[in-house]
Simulated assay, not measured.
Amino acid sequence: MPHQDYQSILDAAIHCAYECEHCANACLGSMPDCARVCTDCAQICWASASYMSRGSRFIPQVVRACIEICDACATECEKYPDNPHCQKCAQACRQASAEYKKVASVAGIA
């Protein structure tokens, strides 16, 4: 599948990675569990963007991990409704997970 077919997912992955990086930085010191899962999520989203941009044959495997990690990050960030950065991160993670699930359903791994 050409990389152009992944554009909406690629955009969601990059946005998620950006919001996760911001949230992780804001949570350092005060909320270490949130910072850790946000860092993990950012890393897998940046990696998935790379896999998708080159149309890798391993996209289905990466997407499976992305769904799990994005959902975990959103769940963690949703624990902090008074922190706007956590809420933005959770929203970006939920959106990315929804986009990844589209790939998963096409690949037959959902």
Rank of each mutant, 00 (worst) to 15 (best):
1 M>W: 07
1 M>D: 00
2 P>H: 00
3 H>G: 03
4 Q>K: 00
4 Q>H: 06
5 D>Y: 02
6 Y>G: 03
8 S>E: 06
9 I>M: 07
10 L>V: 01
11 D>H: 11
12 A>Q: 08
15 H>I: 07
18 Y>N: 13
20 C>Y: 05
25 N>E: 15
26 A>W: 00
29 G>P: 13
30 S>G: 14
30 S>T: 13
31 M>Y: 12
32 P>G: 09
33 D>V: 03
33 D>C: 05
33 D>E: 09
34 C>R: 05
35 A>L: 06
38 C>G: 01
38 C>W: 02
39 T>K: 09
40 D>Y: 00
41 C>H: 02
46 W>C: 09
49 A>S: 00
50 S>L: 06
50 S>W: 02
51 Y>G: 04
54 R>K: 09
56 S>P: 06
58 F>S: 14
59 I>F: 05
61 Q>V: 01
63 V>S: 08
63 V>Y: 03
64 R>P: 00
64 R>D: 00
65 A>I: 06
66 C>E: 11
67 I>Y: 07
67 I>H: 06
67 I>A: 08
67 I>Q: 11
69 I>E: 01
71 D>S: 15
73 C>H: 12
73 C>V: 12
76 E>C: 03
76 E>D: 12
78 E>L: 14
79 K>E: 14
79 K>H: 14
79 K>L: 14
80 Y>L: 01
82 D>R: 10
83 N>E: 08
83 N>K: 05
83 N>C: 03
85 H>Y: 01
86 C>R: 05
86 C>W: 06
86 C>D: 07
88 K>E: 10
88 K>P: 03
91 Q>D: 08
94 R>D: 08
95 Q>R: 11
96 A>W: 00
96 A>G: 14
96 A>R: 00
103 V>T: 14
103 V>H: 09
104 A>C: 13
105 S>L: 14
105 S>Y: 12
106 V>T: 15
109 I>G: 01
110 A>I: 14
